[in-house]
Design a protein around this nucleic acid. Sequence first.
DNA 1: TTCCTTGTCAACCGTTCGGTTAAATACGAG
DNA 2: CTCGTATTTAACCGAACGGTTGACAAGGAA
Lengths: 115, 115
Amino acid sequence: MSADPLSLKFAALADPTRRAILARLCEGEASVNELAEPFDISLPAVSKHLKVLEKAGLISRGRDAQWRPARLEPMALKGVAEWIEHYRRYWDQSFDRLEDYLRKVQKGKDDGERN
Amino acid sequence: MSADPLSLKFAALADPTRRAILARLCEGEASVNELAEPFDISLPAVSKHLKVLEKAGLISRGRDAQWRPARLEPMALKGVAEWIEHYRRYWDQSFDRLEDYLRKVQKGKDDGERN
DNA sequence: TTCCTTGTCAACCGTTCGGTTAAATACGAG
DNA sequence: CTCGTATTTAACCGAACGGTTGACAAGGAA
């Protein structure tokens, strides 16, 4: 039923509104109204986004009177970063191959110019 | 209509089957049948997953007779990695705070033991 | 208590998602 | 041309998504 943590995180990050909320939370805790302000969607919609982020472990929430401040939970992103890091060697390799290719093309061009 | 590239990538990565396909493609190009083999889902389902990955730029596809080999396009992951990297300082910071906390707890415990 | 603000819950709506089966397509082999 | 293999397309289905509106709960202030 409930998806694995990594899938939850990727799915949470797949929405630009939620990514913007995370970016805003880098500046510190914020209430739902503060978080909703930049968007022209309803408050309940923002509330739902926050629930998604919380289930993914990307934020946590406190209570301060009638406010429910949200704060970034950045360790959750570390797991995502580590998953992606496994692929770093492949894109580094791609870059190496691109360099090789460009070197060859340049060489061919020089040869052509010499002929 | 069509989502931004980053959203497409995160959404593509949110499915465990698709992540497994990417992992398999690290070992080299593969046909649809080869990619489908580990899963007990239909071939059209795999074909759809490949289309999602392709639209996200995470793979590209060739043609070899009736085969449509898929290969990893790892540079696409670089963009995702860079987005996440922006948050590294936050989780590094969290880790520092955790270390501080553990140091304090340990100190308190030592004091307690000495009393 | 009453009022106001903050936030969530419930019900609903249209779209997208991940899957299916059945039919169509692309291509090499005989 | 016909057959077989590989893959995609089309149509469909149920569940989840992202949004709405309207009612409700929690808590400080008059």
